[in-house]
Design a protein around this nucleic acid. Structure first.
Length: 927
RNA sequence: GCCCGGAUGGCGGAAUUGGUAGACGCGCUGGACUUAAAAUCCAGUGACCUUUGGGUUGUGCGGGUUCAAGUCCCGCUCCGGGUACCA
């Protein structure tokens, strides 16, 4: 039989499905291993050839682990709520559930064709009520907990209420919004409503007025990670800052733990670095500045309290509440104008315009606590409301932004730090601020002459003694805005009584997404859920109108896979204790600041409340590189319908035009198909080189509009899934980005055919020999086992593919078709090319799936050599090689090398200065 | 601006601890088989020089350490990613 991949692959898909070959259950006799893929959002475009890269890698590893005796959990599901389906629904009226369903069907078909070893019985969809019941459940838990700083964990809100009743909030050390101090008695005298409002300041899921990223184009607020360069990541719509009452998750409570625990994780350094920067820990002090003519204080955060003597002005964010209070009548108009101008500008405009200095004096003055001098207070949009206190003390001498501002408004500049070896100079002569990371203090009262780090400590002590400030750690990580004014998401399990939110009873979950007549906001500007009939409790109390964001459903999905059908819990204790955590997670870096932060946070919370046994969800994580597109170009001669081949294009004035890569093979255009591709080209003429049309190419994003999308279905149709799998791996290291180039796939396909032929004679009849293998044959096998084993554990799958090719070439040369050699080789290759492996395994007479075989062990004894071919070099340049026994002495090796006739030529009668002999490595002769 | 990666033939890439640079594959060239094509197989293939023995040179650029550097150190250039008035 020929290698008929179509028949073979279909046959095994059916069989694996029917036999549930990859179904797993808790098995206490086997060690567990959990391999997870980042589940896809099922878009309308289907999978392109870049998507399965990570899935193939994780599948290889899963199959390898099974062969190594592990009980492997390897699930797949769909991140099914999301904006694209809803945008499509708005345009077409088609319910997003229908589009999503259709897309999922297509995704699943495509995935199944590639032959992944998923346990499909564990498939989940975030939009399924059975699933989002638990998303809602976690939300309620977040709502019913607060973060106790003393215990460094989440604690039930009921404990907090007990505390309040007994002794008020004075001793409570919580992560919370600013709350007035009250006694137990005062608490007890408050109304239910007052109490609930206070509790919202403490809850881990809370409703509050916050500055949010409002995206008018999408009609919803967005979290920080959903905004890039001032526009929405999805859709690219401009984003503006707006104050709105929104649900948020108090992820900032976990900032320190999220940062510290990165250390425990086997993630790439670059990914850890991205998270570190996103969390953005900075140490410094918070300090209060008294205001002139006011009984108010202005609080700032600074990493450099030691430079307070150099503070010559203050700057507030235009959005700050203080602005109104301190602005004098004289400057009222100007301030109002500036604030209005800032509000109007989108985030994008603000970012684009960082170089222009702008600001406005308020008329107010603060008192520098160190110098007692009056210093003017400005507002400027270079100070952000969202970071620190929304106010800064400006040290123009040592901060470049403050410096520019001071120059622009002609404010005084004082030098307070001088580097070792430098003399203080006149700041009026400076072109930029003076670097102050290291050095000694000057012009700074009691900290003069101290080194910077000591000066910082001493200043903080002073601030604390005088009660005007304290040491403080600040994080860049903001609480996650959790509401979206959209339809296609999880409804919040909440209703409102007198404007106060209360959770739905857990037994009433899920609160299902209602039907609406349109997926648009109402005329009053309320979210689409306001259109739903009876969107209220049985008592007639209204439900929340927002839905949850995209990351809600993906934040704990890895836990649900452990126990996907459980209707009593997100995951049972038993399942969680068996599967524990994800051992290997493969996915793209694009989730570094979103999903991977949120799910770590959810997991830590669930750990705190005792629902999961591990405080980190993803032990090891690998980022697969992006597969870029390789676009092809044709060159149209300007003003004609003539196309000139690549190397002749410089003789004409041409326009390069993207051409569908599927019409191009090895850069040669199929001119007939090109004519039919687009009516515009029906009459196209070609100027060829040696009878062919050569295309140009460029590496770009893989995208429909660039006509460079390659569909895995087409590859599978032409070459089979095993070829696709091996070729994707063969392209290069998993973690590197690389262009997809179908050129070259032939080599891998040829290899599989060669592999097939090892088991067949010239007439394509199955034929393997029972003879005992020779030492050479054993050596080829065991060398390969060793190499493959080593490559798999370091995820170097590209080199494994080469190793297989070398092995098959060598066995071919040896004309080896012996069972004892070939059977282990089939197991070895089965993680990479499971279909062909299963088929041959069966032909070899095995009744059980190769999935349950044992990974062969390599034996050192077959690899022992008794000679080593030494490269002999002169001054480091290799001149000849010399076969010498393994156990040769340095002296003898030296002698033999020098006696060699080629050595004589290079020595040219001279005595070598030195001979270096490294056993099993090299002989280097220095002359 | 700051922080992380990366740069090796015509192309994708290999070289795991400093030890024969270019494995493996594509492409290309030549050959075998064939009426022909496909498929398959064999040989060659970094550049330059060459008396065909070989020689010189070569891993983005410039220095350095070393018997020996793609690999380590210092200084650049370019490309990719992240992040950004973060106080």
């Amino acid at each position: 039989m020929e290698y008929n991949f179509r028949e073979i692959e279909q046959k095994w898909h059916k069989k694996w499905n029917a036999d549930k070959t990859y179904k797993v259950d808790i098995d206490n006799n086997k060690p567990k291993y959990y391999v997870l893929d980042m589940f896809p959002y099922p878009s309308g475009a289907g999978l392109h050839v870049g998507h399965p890269l990570g899935y193939i890698a994780s599948d290889i590893y899963s199959r390898y682990k099974r062969l190594k005796g592990y009980n492997v959990l390897h699930p797949m599901g769909y991140d099914a709520f999301g904006l694209p389906a809803e945008q499509y629904a708005i345009q077409t009226g088609q319910h997003p559930a229908i589009t999503t369903d259709k897309n999922i069907k297509r995704y699943k078909e495509q995935l199944e064709k590639i032959g992944f070893s998923y346990d499909w019985d564990r498939e989940i969809r975030t939009s399924n009520p059975d699933y989002y019941k638990w998303t809602q459940w976690v939300f309620i838990e977040l709502f019913e907990h607060w973060y106790n700083n003393d215990l460094q964990k989440a604690v039930p809100i009921t404990d907090l209420i007990e505390n309040f009743k007994n002794e008020g909030n004075q001793k409570v050390n919580a992560v919370c919004d600013e709350t007035d101090i009250f006694s137990g008695e005062e608490w007890n005298n408050k109304t239910e409503k007052e109490q609930q409002i206070i509790l919202l300041n403490y809850r881990l899921a809370y409703l509050a007025d916050t500055e949010v990223n409002w995206c008018p184009g999408l009609g919803t607020v967005l979290a920080n990670d959903e905004v890039k360069e001032g526009v929405s990541v999805r859709g690219g719509f401009p984003v503006v800052q707006k104050k709105m009452k929104q649900w948020s998750l108090r992820i900032s409570a976990y900032a320190e733990r999220l940062l510290n625990d990165l250390e425990k994780l086997e993630w790439s350094d670059s990914l850890k670095e991205i998270q570190k920067n996103w969390i953005g820990r900075s140490e410094g002090a918070e300090m209060k500045f008294k205001l002139k003519d006011h009984d108010l204080e202005m609080e700032v955060f600074t990493t450099r309290p030691d430079t307070t003597w150099g503070v010559t002005f203050m700057v507030l964010a235009p959005e700050s509440e203080l602005v109104e209070k301190i602005t004098t009548s004289e400057f009222k108009n100007e301030i109002e104008e500036y604030v209005l101008k800032t509000k109007k500008r989108s985030e994008r405009e603000r970012l684009a315009d960082v170089k222009t200095v702008s600001g406005q004096f308020t008329g107010g003055y603060a008192i520098n606590p160190m110098t007692n001098q009056e210093i003017p207070i400005y507002i400027s949009d270079y100070v952000l409301m969202g970071y620190g206190t929304g106010a800064i003390m400006a040290v123009p001498g040592h901060d470049s932004r403050d410096f520019k501002f001071a120059r622009h408004f002609d404010l005084p500049i004082i030098q307070v730090v001088v580097k070792e070896g430098d003399e203080p100079t006149d700041p009026s002569t400076w072109e930029d601020s003076y670097d102050s990371k290291e050095g000694e203090m000057i012009n700074s009262g009691f900290i003069n002459d101290l080194k910077v780090n000591k000066a910082i400590k001493k200043t903080i002590t002073y601030l604390e003694d005088k009660s005007i400030g304290n040491g403080k750690v600040n994080f860049r990580l903001r609480d996650a805005i959790f509401s979206r004014q959209r339809y296609w998401g999880e409804p919040f399990p909440l209703y409102f009584k007198e404007g106060i939110p209360y959770p739905v009873k857990k037994k009433d979950l899920p609160l299902e997404l209602p039907e609406v007549d349109a997926f648009l906001p109402t005329e009053k500007g309320e979210p689409p859920l306001a259109r739903a009939k009876n969107w209220q409790t049985d008592e007639g109390l209204p439900f929340e109108l927002s839905t949850m964001p995209g990351f809600a459903g993906s934040s704990a999905y890895y836990l649900r896979y452990m126990d996907p059908k459980n209707s009593d819990a997100l995951v049972s204790k038993e399942a969680n204790e068996y599967w524990q955590d994800v051992d290997l997670y493969i996915g793209g870096t694009e989730h570094a600041t979103g999903h991977l932060v949120y799910s770590r946070f959810w997991n830590k919370f669930l750990f705190d409340i005792g629902w999961v046994c591990k405080d980190e969800p993803f032990k090891k994580l690998i980022n697969q590189g992006m597969i870029q597109g390789r676009s092809s170009f044709v060159y149209r001669v300007k003003g004609t319908n003539k196309f000139v081949s690549y190397n002749l294009r410089n003789d004409f004035e041409v326009t390069p035009i993207h051409v569908d890569v599927n019409l191009v093979s090895n850069d040669i255009l199929d001119t007939e198909s090109f004519k039919n591709w687009n009516p515009e080209y029906n009459n196209a003429e070609f100027i060829l080189e040696d009878g062919k049309y050569h295309c140009g190419y460029a590496v770009e994003k893989m995208s429909k509009s660039l006509y460079n999308v390659v569909n895995p279905d087409d590859i599978i149709e032409q070459y089979g899934a095993d070829t696709l799998r091996m070729y994707e791996m063969f392209l290069g290291p998993l973690e590197m980005s690389k262009p997809w180039d179908t050129n070259g796939i032939d080599g891998v396909h040829k290899f599989l055919r060669k592999f097939w032929r090892l088991f067949h004679d010239d007439q394509n009849n199955f034929s393997i020999s029972e003879e005992n293998p020779t030492d050479d044959e054993f050596k080829v096998l065991h060398k390969t086992i060793k190499k493959i084993q080593e490559d798999i554990v370091r995820f170097s799958f590209n080199t494994s593919v080469s190793a297989f090719m070398i092995c098959v070439n060598e066995l071919n040369d040896l004309k080896c078709n012996k069972r004892e050699i070939l059977e282990p080789l089939v197991i070895l290759i089965s993680p990479f090319a499971p279909h062909i492996a299963e088929e041959i395994w069966q032909i070899c007479g095995k009744s059980e799936s190769i999935t349950f075989a044992e990974f062969p062990l390599y034996e050192e004894k077959y690899l022992v050599e008794n000679v080593f071919e030494y490269p002999v070099s002169f001054n480091g340049k290799m001149r000849f090689t010399l076969k010498l026994p393994m156990d040769i002495s340095a002296k003898e090796a030296e002698k033999q090398a020098l006696d060699h006739e080629v050595a004589q030529k290079w020595l040219d009668g001279k005595t070598p200065k030195k001979v270096i002999f490294v056993p099993k490595r090299i002989i280097n002769i220095v002359i």
